[in-house]
Amino acid sequence: MPSKPASGPSGRPAVGVDLPLRRQEWDLLVRLPRSVLVAACAGDEDVDAVAGVAAIAAGQRSRALLVRGVVAAIFAEQLTDNDIEDIGPGVTAVLADCGYAVRLLAERLGPDIALAYGEWLMDIAASVGRTAWEAGRIRLGGVEIHLAERRFVNGIGRELAQALHR
């Protein structure tokens, strides 16, 4: 059953574009940015999760209508703090979901849409910077991050490259 971004009163998406996606595929695309944010934070209290939320919201400015639709759906859900704490498969599962989502989008909507979505996920992961200095950090976009965070961002990049055969 085709889907459209952003849920309407019937439970079906309600922006005017039909997408060749099943409901569970659309739900994965909407859930994945938050999962990436949670995995990037990795339970560390010295992170700027607000920057991650801002990176999710920045998807509203994407050239890809799909990314803008996903952002609208995310913010339409009105999640509570408890809901956000409950989201959180392990890093390996999140990377696998990233690869699956990008392959799905490349196959169904083309490589440009898949690339826009995958790069947005990388931006979300990279936006979460640690606040205290310690060894093993690098600077990415003016923000210091742990090498483990860099490996996570690079992991998403590898999934994106493999999915797009680059």
Rank of each mutant, 00 (worst) to 15 (best):
A55H: 09
G59H: 06
V50P: 00
R31I: 02
A93N: 06
Y100C: 05
A101C: 13
D97I: 08
N82A: 15
C41Y: 01
G52V: 12
A14D: 11
V30K: 07
R22D: 05
V91E: 15
Q60A: 14
D27E: 04
L21F: 04
V70R: 08
D86W: 13
D86P: 05
V91G: 07
T80H: 10
N82F: 14
A51C: 13
S62R: 02
V102S: 02
R34V: 08
A72K: 05
D48A: 10
V70Q: 02
V53I: 14
V102R: 03
D48C: 09
V67Q: 03
L28Y: 04
L105H: 01
S35T: 10
L95A: 08
E85W: 12
A55L: 11
L21Y: 10
R61P: 07
A42Y: 12
A76C: 00
I84K: 11
R61V: 08
R22S: 11
D48T: 09
G43C: 14
R68I: 03
R12C: 01
V17Q: 11
G52E: 04
A55K: 12
Q60G: 13
A51L: 13
A93E: 11
V47S: 00
Q78M: 11
V70I: 14
T80S: 15
Y100L: 06
W26D: 04
L66E: 00
D18V: 13
A57V: 14
D48E: 09
V50I: 12
D83K: 04
